[in-house]
Every structure is written in structure tokens, then in C-alpha cells.
Design a protein around this nucleic acid. Structure first.
Lengths: 177, 177
DNA sequence: AGGGGCATGTAAAGAGTTACATGATTCT
DNA sequence: AGAATCATGTAACTCTTTACATGCCCCT
């Protein structure tokens, strides 16, 4: 729960939400750099509340259970800021495609090309999708706003996809037909 | 164990090794796209052997226990090729730094700059490290060789670090002093 | 009347990390 | 003599995914 805690706190800091909305928001906006299933989110919310970092108000709503709108408390906001200031502990990268490339020599030239081409198409599509997302008048976005932060993460995604496509193109250029 | 299996099979396909050497090799060469601790590797080797995908020969060597040199069997090589040809199942990306950037608006401008600057320096250093690694006369490396595959993964690393540094520089350019 | 969205949880299994445990050979 | 390297395993714990479970409200 160590990093997910802060993903949850960060989203709640921008706007109070139910666990369900939180899961939907992560799926929609932070999906390419952090995701969690609702099962994990509900557990995290309960743990954060036990520590006094978030609290909830029960609202009327659908369903057989309570409808809980969570918000960050002052201690929660302080914890979030502490995390932002602390160094990231290194995390193991895991990239199945690069792993495949490292064993690419076991395939025929045609199969190797197909492997890379498939991956290239995937990332080219994703790049187009990201480029289509319009965050509005980007130049006027003030740094220090949640909107600019979201725009900045999108730029990270676009840069990453561009690098991926370029690398695949370089690889295809070196692989024989 | 599902993907780690293939990391292990791939390395053993290039050259038979002990579990210890396998762990050292992963740490040294595949670390930036796939890692595993020795505890995980020994468990995976045992599972692969139970399925008949690898086998071992006991050699004389140091230590209180047997010294097992593992190699891939024909069924193991076939499984590895099947995996290479199959589509990657999407994996959740997890990037703590981009997550921090998404909550960057909670920091003062100075603190936000410090956060990004620290990260930029880290990746600039890593880029230099990768650039210094000399895989030899790259142009002459025949595609279809393990050496070219290793060279290609290194290019992926270099491209990634370059993109990271460029993105941090762009961010620093937009963040006020 | 039925389907989709909203909503909250639990349980089990899989993947990965950290810590514990042992001991011979080789190099300085 | 002591340190580093080679070597193999187990146990406990954390994090993440997948599956199970429930049921109201709104729209067509």
C-alpha cells in the first residue's frame, strides 16, 4: 500500500470522491503511470482512514451499502507533501517487450520483424490517442495548478510513446526482410 | 512466475548457467527491463525443471550444496519461441515520479523545481552510464545474434533516458523560479 | 421488464521483496 | 587469518490481480 496511498491522497486532494469514482478516475487519467483495482482502493481507503489521513461523509445514494465520500484531512495533506519531497525509492522496471527483444535472435528474420512491427503499431496508435486529448489552451495553464500537472503527465506519455515508436523504427531498419 | 520463466529460459538459451550466475547476469544486463532476486530465480528453475523445460547437471564446486548448471531442453526452447510469437498481455505501468508530478501543484514553486531537477540529474547520469557501455563495433553486429539483441535493448534504455531528460528539461522550462 | 451504471466490500491466489540460513573455495 | 565470491535454498510478508457477492436507481 505504500505508493498507492499517495495516488489516492493525491486524487482526493484535488477533489473529494467515493471509492468507486476514485477507481474510475484512476482508470481514466492516471492509468498509464499508476493503476489499481477497486478492491485495492477500498482497502487503502480503510487503512488511510484508520490512520486519520482521510475521512468520509455518508451520503444518500444507490446500492445496499453506505455511499461514502472521502476527503483528505490536514494530517493527510501533510503526509502527501512529505512524500512529494522525499526521494523515490528505486523500483524494478519490468518491460515484457524489451525482454522479448533480448531473445529475438531465436526467431526467424520474418518473425522478428513481425514482433517489432506489431509493437510499433500499438505504440503509434497510443501516441495518436494521447495527441488527440486536448487539455485546452496549454500555454495559459498556470504551473502550480492541478490542470497543468495533468498536462505535464500527458506530455510524459507522449514523449514516451514517441521514443518507443522511434526505437521500433530504428530496429526495423536494422532487421532484414 | 509467468514472465520470469521466459527471462530465465532466454538467458539459459544463450548459455547454460547456475542459478547464482543467472541472478548475477540479470543484475548486470537485463536489470533495467527485468530483474529478479535469487530467491525467485531458484523457485522458477525448480518449477521449470518440474515441467521438463530445463534440466541440470551437477558439477563439482564450492558450498555445502550441489552446484547445478542448468540448460534449456527442446520443449523449453519451443515454449520460449511460442512466447516470443504471442502478443504481450498488457501490464500496468507504475511510475512513482510521474505520479508525484500529478500532485506537484501541492508544492511551492521552489520545491517543485527541486523535485524535477533531482529526477533530471538521476536520468542524465544513467544516460551517461549507458552511453559509456561499449558493445563493440555495432554496425557489424549481425541481426539474429544474441549480441545484436543485447545492443538493441541498450538502445531502448538510451532512448528512454533521453526522453526522460528532455521531458524534465521541458518541465523545468515551464516552472517558475 | 431488463440492462447499465453506481456503489462497497471479501477471499483467494499469484508475483515480488526481504530476511534468515549455511558453508566451501579463492584471493589478499 | 579474514574477506570476498560462489552457491542454494526456505519463510514470512507485501503488493496486485481475479473472482465472488450484493443490490438500488435510472433509462429505454
Amino acid at each position: 500500500m505504500s505508493v498507492l496511498r499517495f495516488a489516492v491522497l493525491g486524487l482526493l486532494a484535488a477533489e473529494p470522491r467515493t471509492g468507486y469514482r476514485l477507481a474510475a478516475q484512476m482508470k481514466a487519467s492516471t492509468d498509464f503511470f499508476w493503476t489499481a483495482r477497486h478492491s485495492q482502493i477500498y482497502a487503502t481507503l480503510a487503512a488511510l482512514e484508520a490512520e486519520g489521513l482521510v475521512c468520509h461523509a455518508v451520503l444518500a445514494g444507490p446500492g445496499p451499502r453506505e455511499n461514502k465520500s472521502y476527503r483528505v484531512t490536514d494530517p493527510g495533506l501533510a503526509e502527501l507533501r512529505d512524500w512529494l519531497r522525499s526521494p523515490e525509492r528505486p523500483r524494478a522496471e519490468r518491460d515484457e517487450f524489451v525482454l522479448k527483444v533480448s531473445s529475438m535472435w531465436l526467431l526467424s528474420p520474418g518473425e522478428a520483424r513481425a514482433l517489432v512491427q506489431r509493437h510499433r503499431d500499438l505504440h503509434a496508435t497510443r501516441l495518436e490517442d494521447y495527441t488527440r486529448i486536448d487539455v485546452g489552451d496549454d500555454e495559459s495553464l498556470g504551473p502550480g495548478t492541478p490542470e497543468f500537472a495533468t498536462f505535464a503527465t500527458l506530455q510524459a506519455g507522449i514523449g514516451y510513446e514517441r521514443h518507443r515508436v522511434a526505437w521500433c523504427d530504428w530496429l526495423l531498419g536494422r532487421l532484414p526482410d
